[in-house]
Design a protein around this nucleic acid. Structure first.
Lengths: 327, 327
DNA sequence: CTGAAAGCGCTTACAG
DNA sequence: CTGAAAGCGCTTACAG
């Protein structure tokens, strides 16, 4: 060939500094010998890796499915490789992952922070050249952009819907107060009840469940409540569907004997039996905007550490109806 | 500090070549200045990256959840970083991913190959130093280890169970003949029917659906069959649950009017209404063994390109019962 | 037990 | 438009 490595390097990256003919000749030859570009070497030199990390509680949770898909398609477009990881709400796992990203020289990270994430964890990452963007949950004190749904508004939507149907005793099933999301959703429910002048019995708060299995198991507790509520405002669709399954198993009919609302509007909500009334959470938007914000940061734009709240929408289906007064 | 970089390098990796005192001094100092190990540089030098790629159709599909978790925990133990990707059964996406792995100098790849993967794709990867292990699906002609369930045996289990309950007209809903899995499962069903001397109407094969949504939509087609089958042997749990939802929506009772079997035994199968009779597929074993095999390959052991078939088990629940003869 | 030197495969000024 | 040289941050023989 008789060209210098510099020329090869430029040619392969389509630099106009190389004559078209030379460029083609080099490219053909590269293809012919099965040349494999060594990104480690390039990255070592440029300190850009083309890698973006994404870490959430559990990538297998369908709640994240749409978010991740949106992130994936945004990043694909910018030819960034993305590395996914679960932290299962364990700070240690999250730290190990961030460490790995730093060692690999990742360009940035999108994270749904684990419960108890101190702002320092994020600050340290940023100081070491790993810009971060948060999704779904906030970390107080971390000066980074956050993208999530307006959770308080969303559960208020669901609760108001139940109230307007005539329900007065409404339980809130699932979720935990240890996350900003959990607190916000609970407050949305409380606020709606208060505004309607309805009393709230602390026993109506069944906290904890976050999965279908959890919702299923919570059915027993729910059905055993004295002065049983006529409706349940659930933490998410998984809990709602599990709860409905548990209610069916006990011989009652969800959507008739007990009204149930979900949260997230998973694909599954529409085909559940009965079809689930739920709150659409804008997951796709969350993913898209978070990825965009990170890419902006990477290209040097100054992204201010704002809270972006996506406005949820109520999707009414068959799992909610007027209360049946048993006398 | 006054030590050479060589000493630092050795000290940080706990080499016995460095005096304990020196080692501690170096480590303390590294911590103090917030030293971050540069894996790109190390990898460039050693040509070992500590990265393993995993690519499947869709990581959000719950079928892969247990497999991925098992792989994750095996790889974690060997301190390998794993990079996950979806190929959505698009060869191009799969190729791009393998290319990325090659460029990053990944140590190996575990893949559930996309439909139509030619053996060359795998051979090229291996020749470029990226050993591969397959899960769930086989690629004829690729000399690599494969780990999957014994699909034909599994659907035969389900079909025989239905036959033993007295069903004679049994449909097979979902899946595609374009994958080895699809063909194997269909053959298991066919074989069981034949062995029992039962005729099979080609119209009973409703191929295609692989998701809950797909199963839900297939309900219409199933219920419209002339001489409607009394049972459906489904491609997987998602299809089965979707089908049951569709059957309910049409006013029939799954598990009574129509018996339904699933495949995979997802967590969800046990809490479906009715609880789903299904075939446990040994996902955890598949993931564990595949990861082990790859790690063995990485550590230089010679791993023969065998087919490892995990033996499935039937889990009987409430979605199957004797046929109701309507006269 | 520790240090000086070479080299992994790129990219980027700098010369020509 | 092309080439020679330096350097990114490690690890690994090799000397001492």
């Amino acid at each position: 060939m008789n060209v210098s490595t510099a020329t090869v390097s430029l040619a392969l990256r389509d630099s106009p500094l190389v004559a078209e003919q030379t460029r083609e000749r080099i490219k053909d030859h590269a293809r012919a010998i099965g040349y494999i570009y060594n990104r480690r070497a390039a990255s070592l030199r440029t300190s850009r890796s083309g890698i973006v990390g994404v870490v959430v509680h559990d990538i297998m949770n369908p709640f994240f499915a749409e978010i991740l898909k949106a992130i994936e398609s945004e990043l694909d477009r910018s030819r960034q490789t993305f590395i996914l990881s679960n932290h299962y709400d364990q700070l240690e796992k999250q730290r190990t992952f961030i460490d790995t990203l730093l060692q690999l020289g990742a360009d940035g990270v999108i994270m749904s922070p684990a419960i108890g994430t101190p702002p320092e964890d994020i600050i340290v990452a940023e100081e070491n050249g790993l810009p971060a963007v948060l999704i779904a949950r906030t970390v107080e004190g971390a000066q980074v952009p956050v993208f999530r749904g307006d959770d308080a508004y969303g559960t208020a939507l669901a609760t108001n819907h139940l109230i307007s149907l005539g329900h007065k005793r409404i339980a809130m099933v699932g979720g935990t107060d240890q996350t900003s999301t959990g607190r916000d959703r609970y407050h949305g429910y409380l606020g709606a009840m208060e505004k309607a002048g309805l009393p709230v019995d602390p026993a109506w708060r069944i906290s904890g469940p976050r999965t279908k299995q959890g919702g299923f198991e919570a059915a027993g507790q729910f059905l055993a409540l004295k002065d049983k509520p006529t409706a349940a405002c659930c933490w998410n669709d998984l809990v709602a569907i599990g709860l409905m399954n548990g209610i069916s198993r006990a011989g009652l009919v969800p959507g008739v004997d007990v009204s149930v609302t979900g949260y997230d509007d998973l694909e599954e909500a529409a085909i559940a039996t009965p079809a689930l009334t739920t709150v659409w959470n804008g997951q796709r938007e969350v993913g898209r905007q978070a990825a965009r914000a990170l890419l902006d940061k990477l290209s040097g734009a100054s992204v201010k550490p704002s809270q972006e709240l996506i406005r949820p929408e109520l999707h009414v289906r068959q799992s909610t109806a007027r209360p049946v007064e048993r006398s």
